[in-house]
């Protein structure tokens, strides 16, 4: 049973926690505020926190100058595409490992995990050359392929841990009730696993959206997602703080919102079920 906590103690804890939380969150908040300033206000001394002329001009400028929506669209296609592709490959695999485990299932799981441990830089050169020779450089399909394979182990693992929690007896009941394998998966397993599949989807979209090694190295312009788009602000636009902020907000806002919804699953996905 929880004990009653004195209000005084609670107030002190609240004050400390809020101070720290706001400090951690501050760079994002500051970027948000700056994105609505004029360039002059953005570098004003002393800095202006709330009392400035709010303007949305930066957002239209960024879109006009660097075709934000193209890159946004690239990010959507690449992150959603690679995640869905990974799910399609991973659902049957996770079903198999969770419900018909064999002697080697554990080894296969660990081996899949080990592919995730390989640093990307170790295969940068061959992938780059393969992509160059097959015309996949700077294409969305190329990135979808790489990110699908990159996130496949995480997807399999997450689904596996979720499927493991579904009692095998229910699938056996379906089998007794006359469902064949396909119907067993469609009518019984998938509906029961919807929460798990949804959070797997969410977490992997986030990971793919923020992936910044392959997206930076394999794209240049036409298929560049937002990671590359922002990197291109490095100079000289980086000195225009208001526009940089507007571009940054547009790149991170959708994913922060998604991320807040998937906090719990994040822990499970990123620790491969070692912490729940």
């Amino acid at each position: 049973m929880a004990r009653t906590v004195t209000t005084q103690r609670k107030v002190i804890v609240t004050a400390i926690a809020w101070t720290i939380a706001i400090a951690i969150f501050f760079p994002i908040l500051w970027t948000f505020l700056t994105s609505f300033k004029t360039e002059a206000d953005a570098i004003a001394t002393p800095p202006k926190f709330l009392f400035f002329d709010w303007t949305t001009e930066n957002y239209t400028t960024v879109q006009g100058r660097s075709n934000y929506f193209l890159h946004f669209w690239n990010s959507v296609i690449i992150s959603v595409g690679s995640t869905v592709a990974a799910l399609i490959i991973a659902i049957p695999a996770a079903w198999s490992m969770a419900f018909v485990p064999g002697k080697r299932t554990k080894d296969i799981l660990m081996w899949m995990l080990s592919t995730k441990m390989m640093p990307a830089v170790g295969v940068l050169v061959p992938i780059y050359l393969l992509f160059r020779d097959t015309g996949l450089l700077d294409t969305r399909i190329g990135l979808v392929i790489v990110l699908t394979l990159m996130n496949l182990p995480i997807v399999v693992w997450m689904l596996y841990t979720y499927f493991k929690e579904i009692p095998g007896e229910i699938l056996e009941a379906a089998r007794m009730d006359g469902a064949n394998l396909t119907r067993e998966i469609i009518y019984v397993l998938t509906p029961m696993a919807v929460p798990g599949i949804a959070s797997t989807l969410l977490l992997n979209i986030i990971l793919a959206w923020n992936e910044a090694f392959w997206t930076l190295n394999l794209t240049a312009s036409k298929s560049a997602p937002l990671t590359q788009f922002i990197a291109s602000y490095s100079s000289p636009e980086g000195l225009f703080y208001a526009k940089l902020s507007a571009a940054s907000m547009m790149a991170i806002a959708p994913i922060i919102v998604l991320g807040w919804f998937s906090q719990k699953q994040l822990v499970r996905g990123l620790t491969f079920g070692a912490v729940k």
Binding site: P167, E169, I170, E172, A173, R175, M176, D177, A179, P191
Partner: peptide, 18 residues
């Protein structure tokens, strides 16, 4: 199993929760 015309009641009942 489905072709044997047998019905089974499981220990956990194995109802479809959804």
């Amino acid at each position: 199993p489905a072709q044997r015309r047998l019905a089974m009641v499981f220990q956990s009942y194995a109802l479809y929760p959804h």
